[in-house]
Simulated scan of single mutants.
Amino acid sequence: MKSIKSRIWIEDNENVFLGYGRVQLLKKIEETNSISAAAKELNMSYKKAWKLINSMNVSSQDALVITNTGGKDGGGTTLTPYGKKMIVNFETLNAACEDFLNTEFKKLYQL
């Protein structure tokens, strides 16, 4: 069965705030509690991951990610409740877009 695919992203002043790749990074950070581990699992450099996280946090009304440095527990990175909400919101919006596009595609091509 044929279907249409697309990518969406949310911009802030023409800069990407949130998109598929950034959401994947946030999900891996939630899973691993580590920017380094998340980046490694996504075959991304730590520097790029950090740049993306910083960009999202700066563009956002609230932080999506909080980092804790060193200490006896070794630091770590966590998603904020707002960060978790943004993942859900983005995935909901993305699914709605795909549903809409597939519905329109089927109408146009009567598949």
Rank of each mutant, 00 (worst) to 15 (best):
S3L: 10
K84R: 15
N54A: 03
T92D: 12
V58M: 04
I87S: 04
K48H: 13
K72P: 05
T32A: 04
D99V: 08
G70L: 07
K40R: 14
A38I: 10
G21E: 08
N33T: 12
N13G: 09
E30R: 12
S3A: 14
S60Q: 04
Y20S: 11
K2Q: 11
W9M: 07
K107P: 01
T78V: 14
G76I: 10
S36K: 15
M44L: 14
N33G: 10
E11Q: 10
G83I: 12
Y46K: 14
T77Q: 03
K28A: 13
V58L: 07
E91L: 14
E91R: 13
D99K: 15
L25E: 02
L79A: 11
I10N: 00
T69G: 03
K48V: 12
I29P: 01
I53D: 02
L18V: 02
S59A: 13
L108A: 14
S34H: 03
N13V: 01
Q61N: 06
G74S: 11
G70F: 04
L93Y: 12
D99E: 15
S55G: 09
G74W: 08
P81I: 11
S55E: 09
C97F: 13
E14Y: 08
G19M: 05
T78N: 09
G70I: 09
L18I: 07
K47E: 10
Q61W: 02
I35T: 13
K51G: 02
Y20C: 01
V58A: 04
T69F: 07
W50V: 06
